[in-house]
Amino acid sequence: MCFIQKTPEGGFLEMILMDERLFFTKGTIVKEHELLEIPEHVYDFTTFEEILSGQASSDVLVDVIGQFVDIEQERYDNPKMVIHMKDPRLSNFMEKHETGPIIIILTLAKIKDPKGECPIIIQGSHDSKLLINENIVEIQQYRNRLDSVPVCESLSQAISQISSVFEASTIDKFFVNTPVKSVMEINEFDRELFCVTLAKIEKFFVANGWSYEGCSRCNVKGDPETTYICSGCGKSNTGTVARFRIEILVSQEKECAEFVLWDKECVQLLNVTAAELKKQLIDDGEVDPLAFPEAIECILGKMLAFKIKVQPRCRKSFVIQISDDEQIIDSIKLKLPSDEV
């Protein structure tokens, strides 16, 4: 990576290299290359369904999009989720707004897990941005989907119907920039590739363990014995958190492949964290820290849609998303060769 700046004296340009992996040698040739248009903003929206179901991790910041309904005008008996924003622009915008839906994007928001009977809190962070009815593609696409939702007679009905708008977008999100490939094709790839497939979990590679000690802020492996600077998030840590890492064998007809399930997907499947599972083993009198918990065996035989990153060098594929949604599974079946379904 590099950038060009003009020196104060003028007359010539100075190139400053920002990445030590980039070298210029005597035979290096630099040519002008026309770059494709780079979008100003790229969003990876987390749906309300993912947040409410616990699929969205509270360890990372998220982008959310939705239709504004009201500001503390109606109280709910049992609210499930509350969005906190301290930006005065929203109330100011409401005073001037006349007609039409108000679509809001909140970037880099923090998910706060519920405590007791309290709802899930979505709160803006220091670096969050609030976009209100901006003239951008994402808001226009969301507004177009809302046009198909019938007019509602009550606020609760509106919230329910707005929630349904995400169903189609969740399915689209699963397939974005990821072609559907069969397990046979995945085994033949000689380069890294993101793709989607359908497969059944056949067995675990028990000898490779099921968990590791990771950074408390991200998923990078950490050192539980000392204070260290995490190579993933760059933060100082004094401890670690148990996280899942399970190697599995999956099958599709007569073909098999090795996948690696990480923490988020395992929690989604098992409804328990690695730390909680380790505590259960200790409470049950298990003294072997490498013992494979029986509770994990409940996922054997599951047919799932997998979004993966194929890693030919290690002959494994890393799972980055899973789904048991029937619409997603049916869509994959239609795109797979008939003899692979």
Rank of each mutant, 00 (worst) to 15 (best):
C2Q: 03
F3K: 00
T7E: 08
T7M: 08
E14R: 08
I16Q: 01
K26A: 10
K26C: 07
K26T: 07
T28C: 00
V30R: 02
L35I: 01
L36Q: 12
E37Y: 14
H41L: 13
F45H: 02
F45M: 05
T47F: 00
S53Y: 01
A56D: 04
A56Q: 02
S57A: 03
F68A: 06
D70L: 09
E72S: 11
Y76Q: 13
D77V: 15
D77R: 15
N78H: 09
H84I: 03
H84F: 14
M85A: 14
K86I: 08
P88G: 11
F93P: 00
M94F: 09
M94G: 11
E95Y: 10
I102P: 03
I102T: 05
L106T: 03
L106G: 10
K110G: 09
K110S: 10
P114K: 01
K115Q: 09
E117C: 06
C118Y: 15
C118E: 13
P119V: 00
G124Y: 07
S125M: 01
S125E: 05
D127N: 12
I132R: 01
N135V: 09
N135F: 10
I136N: 03
I136Q: 02
E138M: 05
Q140L: 09
R143L: 11
R145Y: 14
D147K: 14
S148H: 12
V149P: 08
V149T: 05
V151G: 14
C152R: 06
S154Q: 04
L155N: 14
L155D: 13
A158Y: 12
A158D: 09
I159A: 04
I162C: 11
S164Y: 07
S169E: 09
K173M: 15
V180P: 02
S182A: 02
F189C: 04
D190E: 14
E192A: 05
F194Y: 08
I201N: 06
F205P: 14
A207L: 14
Y212F: 06
G214D: 03
S216V: 15
R217E: 13
C218N: 02
N219G: 06
V220C: 03
T226Y: 07
Y228R: 01
Y228D: 01
S231L: 06
S231H: 15
G239D: 10
G239H: 05
R243Q: 06
R243W: 00
R243C: 07
F244H: 02
L249F: 12
V250H: 00
K254R: 11
C256Q: 12
F259V: 08
C266H: 02
L269Q: 07
V272Q: 15
A274M: 02
E276Y: 03
D283M: 13
D284P: 10
D288K: 02
D288Q: 03
D288G: 05
L290G: 11
K302R: 13
M303D: 09
A305H: 01
A305V: 06
K309T: 05
R313E: 09
K316W: 08
Q321M: 06
D324M: 04
D324G: 10
D325W: 02
E326S: 12
I329E: 07
L336R: 03
E340F: 10
V341G: 07
